[in-house]
């Protein structure tokens, strides 16, 4: 029996729109849990452009992606949201009625939640590992080709090929080298963007003859029934050669895919979720969609629009969470009640 977490609202995603919605829900005494496949809050702002300046956040002539996320986290601190990182929401089951909705949310880490409303703030979808376009690679996936290392033991005494030049590729090179039969790191250029100390450690292993580094690309695979026996390696214009290996771990970064959201019974329009523009509710009462993942006439994929959408969705969520309470609109500038919640009174 898995533990079940009961809460008012589950927010799918932890990007800027999701974070600000925590604030708007918090002002209305609505508790929430956020689930994100990434290891940290901030969504694309943290993952794609933490250092990039953003110029169209109202009141901030210029702020970086990371700066905006830090500010949002500070802003929602009084409401103590619970984050569940490194988890993909796999199932969303409708339990209640249209008037009194209830949902069960399940993640790939077997965490389950029951809640009264769900806010999908999943941006461009889930960040999933990019798969190299090597013909027939699918047949090897999860048997001998892996995009992440979950259990190191599965790699013991194997000939391992790791492809990539970033931190994931270098970290796993250093972690797996001691237990591998032989490890080969392949990168398209002899220049690595990973942390310099890991690059140096790798170069020392290569110099000591304890692993191989080859500059080029993998262009094909050899093997049988999902079990890899070799990878075809090509350097520049030279002919491809086969490197014997039983495990291949490509690290080509992340890409956004809609993923399981497509199976939740929501209407979709070209991988976007249509919503009404008064409450940003989907075709399923109690399920809302805000930020880059929704669509409506005039939609703009701007962070500021996500903030607006979350604010309005929160008003309708209040009706589901507190059906008997009348909601009186208040300002944070003048309401002592709201200021108490924010801890400034």
């Amino acid at each position: 029996m898995v533990d079940n977490i009961e809460t008012d609202v589950v927010i799918v995603g932890a990007g800027p729109s999701a974070l600000f919605t925590v604030f708007e829900l918090g002002l209305l005494d609505i508790k929430c849990h956020l689930i994100d496949i990434l290891p940290r809050a901030g969504g694309q702002c943290s993952e794609l452009y933490p250092e990039k300046p953003i110029y169209d956040i109202p009141g901030h002539p210029m702020i970086t992606g990371a700066g905006l996320v830090d500010n949002l986290l500070a802003q929602i601190e009084p409401f103590r949201p619970t984050f569940h990182f490194d988890q993909l929401v796999t199932e969303l089951e409708t339990l209640g009625t249209a008037e009194a909705p209830a949902f069960r949310v399940k993640t790939d880490a077997d965490t389950t939640f029951t809640c009264k409303a769900v806010i999908v703030a999943a941006g461009g979808g889930s960040f999933l590992p990019k798969k190299p376009p090597i013909e027939g690679i699918e047949a090897y996936e999860d048997k001998s080709v892996f995009y992440a290392v979950r259990k190191m033991e599965a790699f013991r005494d194997k000939n391992i090929v790791i492809v990539g030049g970033g931190d994931s590729a270098l970290d796993w090179t250093l972690n797996l080298q001691p237990i591998a039969k032989r490890l080969t790191l392949i990168h398209r250029r002899d220049d690595f963007r990973a942390a310099p100390h890991s690059v140096n450690a790798m170069r020392e292993l290569v110099a000591a003859g304890k692993m191989d580094l080859r500059i080029g690309q993998i262009v094909g695979l050899a093997g049988d029934d999902g079990e890899l026996s070799g990878a075809h390696f090509k350097a520049g214009k030279e002919d491809a050669v086969e490197i014997a290996c039983e495990r291949l771990i490509p690290f080509f970064g992340l890409t956004m895919k809609l993923g399981p959201i497509a199976e939740w019974g929501l209407n979709l329009n070209e991988n976007l979720i249509p919503v009404d523009t008064a409450q940003f509710e989907t075709n399923v009462p109690g399920i809302f969609a805000i930020g880059d993942i929704n669509t409506y006439p005039g939609k703009l994929k701007l962070i500021l629009c996500g903030f607006h959408e979350g604010s309005l969705a929160a008003q309708k969520v209040h009706r589901y969470v507190y059906p008997d309470k009348k909601l009186t609109f208040q300002y944070t500038t003048s309401s002592t009640n709201l200021q108490k919640k924010l801890g400034v009174q």
């Binding site: 990539g164 030049g165 970033g166 990168h187 398209r188 250029r189 963007r193 690309q217 080509f252």
Partner: peptide, 11 residues
């Protein structure tokens, strides 16, 4: 840009 090209295929 070179760092980003690491994530592209058939570079």
């Amino acid at each position: 840009e070179e760092d980003m090209l690491d994530f592209a295929y058939a570079v």
